[in-house]
Design a protein around this nucleic acid. Sequence first.
DNA 1: AGATATTTGTTCGTATGTATT
DNA 2: TAATACATACGAACAAATATC
Lengths: 263, 263
Amino acid sequence: MKAPPGEKKRVGTNARGATSARGRNRPRQLAEALKDWIAEHALQPGDRLPQEKELIELFKASRGTVREALKLLEAQDLVSIRTGPRGGAYVKDVSLERATELLGNYFFFKNLTIHDIYALRIQLEPELAASLVGVITQQDIDQLQRLMTRYDHPPQSPGEEREQRFAELAFHETLTELCPNPVLAFSCRFLIRLLKELTICHRIYERPQPKLRAGGHSYQLKLLEALRENDAHGARNLMHEHMCFARDLMETQEAEVLRQFLR
Amino acid sequence: MKAPPGEKKRVGTNARGATSARGRNRPRQLAEALKDWIAEHALQPGDRLPQEKELIELFKASRGTVREALKLLEAQDLVSIRTGPRGGAYVKDVSLERATELLGNYFFFKNLTIHDIYALRIQLEPELAASLVGVITQQDIDQLQRLMTRYDHPPQSPGEEREQRFAELAFHETLTELCPNPVLAFSCRFLIRLLKELTICHRIYERPQPKLRAGGHSYQLKLLEALRENDAHGARNLMHEHMCFARDLMETQEAEVLRQFLR
DNA sequence: AGATATTTGTTCGTATGTATT
DNA sequence: TAATACATACGAACAAATATC
């Protein structure tokens, strides 16, 4: 036999159940308590919380409750849980991916349009471009240029069509990684994510877009030129034109797809 | 007796444990699967998910795992869970407050500056203003004007100073509530929240800002005028000037406060 | 108003996989 | 490689909440 703990056997049927019911929504309370505990003990990202067993004693809660509370914190990306020895809950700073995902939920039922999203992209992407002047290196520019080779030619297959659209967006995502303004970077990146998730975009991205591809490629090329010359004004203007161009084409396509869909 | 389920008793000792290890992080997977299930079945806010027992059969998971997955969704504010008959997990619209809070975690350790935030406000608030044309009613304008009476006079006490700053921000928050573009509305509102949370702003808001108050008031008055006349172009320009004005004053104050702090 | 049925909430015991030592 | 510590997962029973009759 493996592990006969306790007294004699006491199989299953322990369960004196929810003994005292100190209040409902216990896991939520515990999660809040843990947050306070983290703040009180001034835990920094990378520090480890006490292990489950200790938390059970510290907060007088069962394993299940402790686990649910930890999951709540994990869902907010405030901790990450690792398995094995030296495992447990580690304090973490919130990742870009998680923040993006959580915010995405907010817009889940909002029925955004291409117009809504581009209204912001037109304002923010030019600022993003301008913010890179003096920060971007020749290596960064080279990397961006390599990325552009994925759509410097007409697509050979319907699959490549879609892939090229995503590569174009990846170009802009790469720019956000270099941006020194965290809010601006996050916003631009999030708008791209919203675009990717719009179902209407999936339909659009499946159709041939020779003008969008060629036009976008040429704008991005000129943009890199401006960035190489530390020309913030030029970069801003080029990105603005690029966005206006893309918006107009996307909105035209949107109308066309919808017309096809309704027929 | 209450509920003698099962066959004879089958005390405890079930546990074939983590049977197949279909992959770890099972609850997370389940949560994702549930999200997909919601999308596939086109569930709308208010609709109910299957109850725990059915989910256990549907997804072949234990009760604990199902519960953890549901808790994850609840933590993301995607469902709310009720007890009792007709209880269960109900699909829910993510609240603005929750989304704001969760995103706020991301910027917690990012050390934003006034400059960072205003770089976006300058771009977005003018669009916000313009988007209201044709949407805003006379009642809305009246309400905004009532709000403005809270800072149409010099503050009488240090406490009123701060209160006036927050009332000015409330003016902009009210505008976001009328904006038809959900992304734009959220972005503007979130920037305001970031401003409110910046500790440097707390210090600035404690000092007398006669120019900021008088200038802001006059800009907002002219803005309402433009909106009343459905002048999108005018509204955009006025808001742009308003933001530039505010940014310059805030950055000046920031430098001054920092200088004082370092002394 | 009170009884009842339904559904989530909490707790315990236990087994298993896995990473570290 | 073997031992070990730990998280992960499962199942069962009881408790509390709440809608319905």
